[in-house]
Simulated scan of single mutants.
Amino acid sequence: MISGPELLIFFLQVLRISVPYVLTSVGAVFSERGGVINLALEGLLLAGAFGAAVGQHATGSALLGVLCGVACGLAVALLHALLTVSLKADQIVSGIALNILVMGGTRFGLSLLYGSSMNSERIDGFDASLVLLDPLFLFAVASVAAGHYVLFHTPYGLRLRSTGEHAAMVDAAGISVVRMRYSGVLISGVLAALAGVFLAYQQHSFTDNMSAGRGYIAIAAMIIGRWTPVGAALAGVMFAAAESLEMWLQTGFLPSQLVQSMPYIVTLFVLAGFVGRSRAPREVGVPYEKQGK
C-alpha cells in the first residue's frame, strides 16, 4: 500500500522529470507546424546543457548560464534551419547529423575545458529545493499555455500553421515562407535548449550524452499530442510518469533490464496506437521551392 507521503514524492518526481519532455515537445510542435522536421532535438538538449554548465561555471551566475545555454541551442537550431530551409537538405539527415556533431563537440569541449570526456565541474544551478519553485519549471508550464495561445489565437500562429499546410498559399499572400520556417525552428531551439539547461542544473553538472534519448521521446510526445502544445505536454507528462515508475520498480522483483526499458516500451506501444490516427501538417518535411523559379 502506497502511503500519502510516498504518493506526493512520486508526483513531484513526475513533475521534475516531465520538464525536459514538455519544453522539448512544445518546441517540436512549433518547428513541425512550420513544415520542418526537427530530429536535432537531442543535439539541442545537449547544446543547451553544455552551454549552461560552462556559462555558470565561468561566471558564477545561474542566469548567465541560462543565456549561454540558449545561445548554444540557437546556434544549433540556426544551422539546422540553414541546412533544411535555405539549402533544402534532407531534414531527417540534417537532424541526425547535428545530433552526432553536438555529441562529439560537447565531448571534445569537456576534454578541452575540464580534462575529462565524461563530465564538467560541479555547478549550483538555481537554488530551488522544490521543483514547483524552479524558474524553469514555471517557464515550462507557461510555455504550454503561451504556445497554445500563440499557435491558435494570433496572426503569427495562423501563418506558421499555414506554412506547414500549404506553403505556396502563404507565399502568394506575401508572407515569407523562409522566415516563418526559420522562426519555428528557432523557437524549438530555444525551448529544447532550456530543457537541456534544466537537466544540467538538476544534475549540477554536464555529463556526456545526458539527453539520453529525451529528444526522440519528445518527438513521440508531439505526435501523440497531435501537434498541439497542450497535447504534447500531456504526453510528455505520461512519459515522465513511466520513467519515474521505472525508478520505483528498480528495487522490486522484475528484471532490471525490463524495468529500464519501460519508458521506451511505453513509447512504442503508445505510438503504435496513435500514429495512424494523427495527421501531421501536410507539407512537413517538404522543402519549398518558390513559385516562378
Rank of each mutant, 00 (worst) to 15 (best):
Y182G: 04
S183R: 10
S183L: 14
S183H: 12
S183D: 10
G184P: 08
V185P: 06
V185A: 02
V185I: 12
L186N: 01
I187G: 01
S188G: 14
G189D: 10
V190I: 13
V190E: 07
L191W: 07
L191Y: 08
L191V: 10
A192I: 04
A192H: 00
A192M: 03
A192E: 06
A192W: 03
A192K: 00
A193S: 13
A193G: 13
A193Y: 07
A193M: 13
A193W: 10
L194S: 05
L194Q: 09
L194P: 00
L194V: 11
A195P: 01
A195N: 06
A195V: 12
A195K: 02
G196V: 09
V197M: 05
V197L: 01
F198D: 03
L199E: 00
A200L: 11
A200I: 11
A200S: 12
A200K: 04
Y201V: 06
Y201P: 03
Q202M: 13
Q202N: 13
Q203H: 12
Q203F: 14
S205C: 14
S205P: 01
S205L: 14
S205Q: 15
F206H: 08
F206M: 06
T207K: 09
D208V: 11
D208A: 14
N209G: 10
N209D: 15
N209Q: 14
M210N: 11
M210H: 11
M210L: 12
M210K: 09
M210T: 13
S211G: 08
S211D: 11
S211P: 01
A212G: 05
A212M: 14
A212K: 10
A212E: 14
G213D: 14
G213E: 13
G213M: 13
R214H: 12
G215P: 08
G215T: 14
Y216W: 15
Y216S: 11
Y216Q: 07
Y216L: 15
A218C: 15
A218M: 13
A218R: 03
A218E: 04
A218T: 09
I219R: 04
I219D: 01
A220F: 05
A220N: 05
A220I: 00
A220E: 02
A221H: 05
A221N: 05
A221I: 12
M222K: 03
M222P: 06
I223W: 02
I223A: 06
I223E: 04
I223G: 03
I224L: 15
I224A: 06
G225Y: 08
G225W: 05
G225C: 15
R226M: 06
R226K: 15
R226I: 05
W227L: 02
W227T: 07
T228Y: 01
T228F: 02
P229Q: 10
P229G: 12
G231K: 00
A232R: 04
A232M: 15
A233Y: 09
A233L: 11
